[in-house]
Design a protein around this nucleic acid. Structure first.
Lengths: 334, 334
DNA sequence: CTGTTAGCGCGTTCAT
DNA sequence: ATGAACGCGCTAACAG
């Protein structure tokens, strides 16, 4: 592999000049620049990024830590991050935290040990204090899907309470009054906020929140299965169920269909997240969007702007959910 | 950040000795080793991986190029790769090729420019020749989901023909004789092979392959929608449809349900891939597995073994599909 | 505008 | 078993 030295010899210039044309910081005369470029071409020269990193103290890499690499969320997010960053010639190193505190911390340690210039974190098990401390360290961090007042300028998050409100508000506007709620695990902030929004909508319609009609799920499909099976054992009238995730909504629908309950004729269902899959099955799921891909892109822009001074784009931190009306919920007719 | 030099001073030894205890290649007396360890601890020393890379000419990073980071496949694969590699203290750099030749090549270039010690590639647009040439280069590569005779020792693939055979064979064993086939795009080898298997099963049962009952889809949900809508316009008897992907099968089922066709009572459906989602909706999808996660893990082991000499695990290259009988297909009753 | 000269932090001979 | 010295490929002052 040709080095910068080989190029300098062939071009008849110094190492520094070659370096200059690569980074075009300083002015170089067109003539010498061309000589260097020619030399590079004929040697098929590729800069050694590792040597560049060592010398410049900048690795051009950003670490991304997510709870899981699979599932319907992180894929779209990673796609946007990778695209945005690569077009700026930065590379992304990935790590998974598996929603476990120790693993999330070890993931952060790992990425920092790799000399990442910045970290994009989607973590849920570590404490606010831990993140605040991290924030004060030397490696810049961006938080996705998490809002911490003290360090809000590095937080990119969805207005979950508002989304929760929108979903339930829509259902209530359809005339439903007996609505069950399948939440995520209350240990997660997202789940708490969505539930808060649900309650707010209920209150606006003068409806009481019925504890019995609330099932704490796990955001996953089988959590939805369990939820609906449980709801069915109750001897209560239920005309709609609001779910805190599309995956759970799908699980709920599956149990309904298996029990001969038609969706949306007999019962209305609404989800949350707007993941791709439930848009293509029957009935098409009505839901509220979680623009995780856009948040990923924003995180990448944040890094480009704050760390690499590469762009002057405005970064927005708060994302608003949006209602997607499809076929799984309809007006109450009785 | 403390450097190896600081440690050597505090421990009262030379740089070389500190380096030795880090890499414990050569023998170091227990006494000095302990001094060094203590010094490291009290300085909270972390080796600079970039400097290590430059000096050792080994970046401890492996590049992974997939067609897309989202979708139901690559997540599980990435999870396994990341887990296996990180436990060996290697990091993974990701890139997406978007099933486009130019983008796949630029992805490979990008990863190589990052000094990756090896590349794990899941590419479909580049030619065999390109890959063979890459194989002969200095950076080791592993191919996932692709079989090229000339370089088969670095190929990790699924026996797609066999899977196609299994799916159709199962359907035929249920007594179906009028079966439609929704394939992937014929430009992809996977799609071709699965179709071949389908035809073999047909032949074994003495059934002719009917061109009219074959729809070339795109592996995606809406491809399944289109397929079933098309099949419905035909005035042909169809008691079962075999799909080359679970996503398409889901799209097919959706259209059936929307048209009042019951699955599996009126029509049997079988998918391919065994992705998570269709396992939780109604009816639960019968399918053939595509152990993409295991293939990812195997690719990681391959790299560990061939590139880092880290393990003595046997690496298997050919993966066999497996039939998962669930609820979307049942015996023909008429 | 261009060349010289130090490092960046660490691995690795080669002596001792 | 340990230390001195060089080099990995490149960037960044500092001169000129």
């Amino acid at each position: 592999m040709a080095t910068i030295y080989d190029v300098s010899v062939l071009a008849g210039v110094s190492l520094a000049t070659v370096s200059r044309v690569m980074n075009n910081n300083t002015k170089v005369s067109d003539k010498t620049r061309q000589k260097v470029l020619d030399a590079m071409a004929s040697l098929d020269y590729r800069p050694n990024t590792i040597a560049q990193s060592l010398a410049s103290n900048c690795s051009n890499s950003v670490g991304v830590l997510v709870s899981q690499l699979d599932g319907p969320f992180y894929g779209p997010m990673m796609t946007e991050i990778e695209t945005s960053l690569r077009s700026a010639n930065k590379h992304v190193i990935i790590a998974a935290g598996h929603s476990d505190e120790a693993q999330e911390k070890s993931g952060v340690e790992f990425l920092m040990s790799r000399g990442c210039d910045a970290l994009i974190l989607d973590v849920e098990a570590v404490s606010d204090e831990y993140l605040i401390k991290l924030y004060k360290g030397t490696t810049p961090i961006v938080l996705i899907n998490r809002y911490i007042e003290a360090i809000k300028d590095c937080c990119i998050y969805l207005e979950n309470e508002q989304g929760g409100y929108m979903a339930t508000n829509y259902i209530l506007s359809l005339g439903h009054k007996d609505v069950a709620y399948v939440s995520g695990p209350m240990s997660k902030r997202d789940a708490q906020d969505r539930l808060l929004g649900h309650k707010r909508a209920l209150a606006e319609y003068g409806l009481a929140f019925d504890d019995e009609l609330w099932y704490e799920g796990n955001f996953r499909e089988f959590g939805g299965n369990d939820a609906m099976n449980h709801l069915l054992t109750l001897d209560k009238k239920i005309t709609a169920v609001v779910c805190a995730s599309d995956q759970m909504a799908s699980g709920v629908i599956a149990v309904c269909l298996e029990n001969g309950i038609k969706v949306p004729d007999d019962i209305s269902i609404i989800g949350y997240d707007n993941i791709p899959f439930p848009q293509y099955i029957s009935p098409k799921l009505t839901t509220v969007s979680n623009p995780i891909n856009e948040m990923g892109k924003m995180a990448a822009l944040w890094v480009l702007q704050h760390v690499y001074k590469d762009t002057k784009v405005d970064v927005d931190c708060a994302f608003a959910p949006e209602l997607f009306i499809r076929d799984s919920a309809k007006p109450l007719t009785s």
